[in-house]
Every structure is written in structure tokens, then in C-alpha cells.
Amino acid sequence: MLDLRGVTVPGRQRPRLHALSLQLKPGERVALLGPSGSGKSTLLAVANGLITPPQGRVLWFGEPASRRPQLRRRQQARIGTLWQDLRLVDELSVQQNLNAGCLARWSWGQVLLNLFSAQDSQACRLALARVELDHGLLMQPLDRLSGGQRQRVAIARLLRQDAQLLLADEPLAQLDPPLARRLLQLLLELGQAPRALLLSLHRPDLLEGFDRVIGLRCGELLFDQAPASLTSADLQQLYSTQGQP
């Protein structure tokens, strides 16, 4: 689904990603570990096309990332990102935010209509139900929701987008332990075939259920293995301050 080959993204002092290669197959759920500043967010930005790496190749669903805007948008429409800061539109209602996931395939008329009236409630209800939110929230303005609820809305937007490749940037950062577990469970379920999930996190204790764990350090791949085979020595090496700038 995602195929990065020798990707390098230059940074100010040292490259943010250096000759990184990574493959993701359908149904694979991959955890991305690494200390702050190790390039996790950059990797996700390359994966969803926000950054076009000057060196290396990015393949989406077996095709090289296109440079033609229209084609590129069609590729990107199949990649969904759960941003760390969610990036929802605060001024819109829950339903309108969910529908914002459909912009890629919608016509102009539908886009404008979405700003004024409800569009396809049924699909939105299903998406909300999938993330265990009450459909009564559909008409609520987004700014009345709690942090946890907003995060679920953002996930539901990915469902509405019908994304195949799910990318999540530290979705568990500000959640209490039980909530974090439930959300992770949800994302892991969503990441089953035919979809795939690449999720960055800071919690080595929550790797259960992932198919692979990737360790990233200073923009380079440190390890890429099954979670079961991950040793504490690996983790120590990953988070050690030695060699850090």
C-alpha cells in the first residue's frame, strides 16, 4: 500500500529523514516508535503527501506518487490522516466536519450545499456509530464537544473519506490510560484488511495487537520487527540520549 524507497528529507542541521525505506501491505498495522524529533511526524507527512521528498521514491498503492495535481489528489483521497491537532473545522457542525472527508469525490454543488444544509445523514450516522459516538451529536457545533469526542469525530471523518491507508500521529498523547486503550483498540480494528494502519506513539506498553513495530531514530530506521520480538535492549537503544544531537 505504501512503499517508501530511500527517502531523504533535508533539515536545518541534519536530515529529518535519511535514506529511509518502508513497505506496508494491506491489513498490516504498524506502530511507529521513536523519541521526540526522531522524524515520526515527517515520515507521516511524506506518507500522506504533505511533503514531497527531494530524494527517494514514494509509491502509493503500487503507483509512484504523481506530480499532476488531479491524479495526485485521486491518490491522496485514499490516504487518511488522523492529525495530532485533529485539524477539524471548529466553526462547522459534527456532520459538516464528517462530510469534509468527502470533498475529494464531491461536486462543487455538494460542497456548497454542505455549508448550508445536511448531506447524506445516513452515512454520517454509520461513521459515528463505528467510532461509538451518539448520532445525536451530528448537529452539534464542533466546539461544544470534549477532546475525546473530537478525536473520534476526526476518526469518523477518515471513515467518511473511505481511506484505505490510515496514518495516525500520536493519537493517544493526551488521553487517560483506559481511554487510550479503547481508542487504540478502535484504530486497530479499523486497520484490518483491506486497510492498513501506520500509527506513531510514545507508549511501548501498548504495542499489543500491532503486526510490526518500527523504531525511528535521528531520521533513520533502527528496527522493524514483530512486537513480540522487541526487547528492552532495543527500546533502550531507541530512547538513549547517546548520539543524539
Binding site: N48, G49, A77, I79, V89, E91, L103, A104, W108, L115
Partner: peptide, 27 residues
Amino acid sequence: RPLEALSSAGAPAWSALFTALLPPLWP
């Protein structure tokens, strides 16, 4: 940022602009 999020999910430029920026601009 919301505009970026929508564009990187493949939304056409004008649609993304309207959905992400019109609502905060409107009031």
C-alpha cells in the same frame, strides 16, 4: 492547518478552501 488536512486528503483546492476557510471567515 484544517485546509492542509483537507488538501492532503485529496480535496480539490477550491472545495477545501470553502470548507476549511469560509466557516471561520464567515462570522
